[in-house]
Design a protein around this nucleic acid. Structure first.
Lengths: 216, 216, 216, 216
DNA sequence: TATGAATGAGCCTTCATTCAT
DNA sequence: AATGAATGAAGGCTCATTCAT
């Protein structure tokens, strides 16, 4: 092996080590935040769970807030990437919505600590909310909105409901399913709820016999 | 007025004064929490806005937490009472849902500070969430669920979607409408969204031409 | 009854009422201080036990401190007066000491709450201690010192021990008996200890066979 | 010195540094408590006198209370250890008592701040008193009681006075000597009083001519 | 005299963050 | 890169005292 590659290899190793430790700390933070609540969690606790010293956390993250933001960003980025990749080949907007719903609830249903952080701890205050809603969350809502718009263009969705409003309703429904699951004392599987949400969103709860609903 | 009524009058005056002061402090707390966030708000700020001394707050409320809880409880109690009263005469489940949605978004749309507290500050942590979800919030969800069940019995709603899941979807949609409105930089009227939510919830976004949707 | 006497009678009645209420509050304070400790006691508690409003306490006493001081002064004044009166006819210094010791321990042994206040709560801090030691407590120590000096003059007490030091030792012994009784979990009668204190103080614990003691 | 000893040396240095800082804070607390009184002292003052940050105090002590308790425990432990060590070789109970008295008054007489804390501040309330009297203070009284019992067995002390009562009287006398010294405005040496206390305790203040004292 | 609602000064403690090693 | 001892700002809450009634 040529000597020249050594530094590069070392760099790669280092990069991996860093990535590992970042992930290690982030997983510890998710667990601690979920179980104690963000404000009741101490950086020292997270460090202990991660098996590092308190000061070490600050080598990888700016602040305690940054830990929370990073959990959000990392998960959102992954979800968005996964979502976009999977949607690539799907032409049916209804199928796309179903996929988004499944991805959404499956990811949260798979990792309860993550779900708690997403459904509860991240809603700390306008401080966080505003920071989030201006970026990745908007991207996520945009993904849904575009899917609905696609359905409207292709004629499978009504055009008299704005895609933006539809996206809020769809996201809100999924979000509430997740929040309810997180706060419920009963233990049930979250993911199956995705089908119902999609079904209701597309077909409504109105019976076929009933005429089109009440207009204001 | 007979002399005998004097004590009663004094008592009433005092009772009113107390009620006023509680309400005064609660309104101040709503404003301060909404603008600074719960954790960034100081009890001294609330007292200043209410025009009382810091210690006086503790004559009417147990703690800072209690202020937040009281805002929630007071509003929920009123909303539930109003909702039940108005629903009394309505037999059509679709009409009932429409009414609930309007009441929900109108109340929040009328008082932005209250909306901020409800959509953001109250979601502080599982500590609060669990406290809430076990009581009045459950009552509210039950009100929706019962309305859906009524619609299923009368045949205007499908019976192959559980009323409980339907209630989550309906509430989640309304909740997201409110949260989006609160966090949005644009200023628009919240209440009109109620109709769309009801429409989509009942009729779905699927076009009439499109067949019944995707089953899992 | 002459009209002229009415004011006087009223004044007397008022004076009595005042004396009663002062006493009432003071007894309540003694009880509350004894059971909760001075700093843990709240003026509102004392008022409640006395059956008056919080503000009323301040019509009879300057401050919370004043309550503690008044308990001390009232008891000391009574004890000193009783002591002096009883000592009047006694010529034997040993008999006098015995009487003082009995009076001391009987008064405390009769009222445990008072004893707790005297042995514990009054030792709050130099602030109180210095205030007390400069007046009535000095008078009390002087009463003992003078009794010892009398005994030295009449030849029943050694003159090679200063009366002042002797008084400290005698008082300290009584004081410790009381403190031990107050803090003890066992329930026993305090007063009988007076005899032992006097006996040891006068005769020493040395056996008769043993020669006069160790000199430094 | 071999290289191998370096880690051990570093450990020792750190241990010393910690021991120093604990002691440093404890000395500062003694000074501040003595001069301001416990309740009037602020933890921030103690930190300033010790030359550390306020938070640092809490790295070494649980609470403000703990500082007071630690002063007591440290001093009592040392005094008990010193006392037991010194008593080892002494067979004469009278000599032993004299030694205890000297140790007691010398230690307090040497450090006025410590004396103030012991004689005044530690008598705060039953809260502290009960905590103390159940352990180290009992040990100290037991040391005196055992010494008296030893004297009774060897025949130099009377057996008709219980060793327990004798111990209270002896301790009370020493305690009062110290309290008087602390509260006195005059400045005199405390330790010499030890001899008088022992003398009076063993021989009594009764003159040799006088017969055995008054029996109840 | 009596009330008790209102006042507001005062402080212990926590814990995110830093930095010397 | 890693440590963890040290920092110090920040605020909820209590309660003695006042005063309008």
């Amino acid at each position: 092996m040529p000597a020249a590659s050594a530094p590069s290899r070392r760099l790669t190793a280092r990069t991996l080590a860093i990535a590992d430790k970042r992930g290690l700390i982030l997983r510890a933070a998710t667990q601690v935040f979920a179980r104690n609540g963000f404000f009741q969690s101490q950086v020292a606790d997270i460090a202990r769970v991660a098996g590092v010293a308190a000061g070490t956390v600050y080598l990888y993250f700016q602040s305690k807030d940054d830990l929370l933001v990073s959990i959000f960003e990392r998960t959102m980025r992954e979800t968005l990437a996964d979502g976009r990749a999977a949607l690539e080949g799907m032409t049916d907007a209804r199928q796309r919505l179903a996929h988004i719903a499944h991805l959404h609830l499956e990811r949260l249903g798979r990792d309860r600590d993550l779900a708690v952080v997403f459904q509860v701890e991240l809603r700390q205050s306008t401080k966080f909310m505003e920071r989030f809603s201006s970026t990745l969350l908007q991207d996520y809502l945009a993904l849904i909105r575009d899917t609905i718009a696609l359905g409207q263009q292709s004629g499978v969705f009504r055009s008299d409901v704005s895609a933006t409003t539809g996206a809020k309703i769809f996201f809100g429904a999924l979000d509430e399913m997740a929040t309810n699951w997180v706060l419920s004392k009963r233990r049930y599987r979250l993911a199956p709820g995705a089908d119902t949400v999609v079904d209701v969103f597309i077909n409504g709860v109105g019976s076929r016999r009933a005429e089109r609903a009440i207009e204001p």
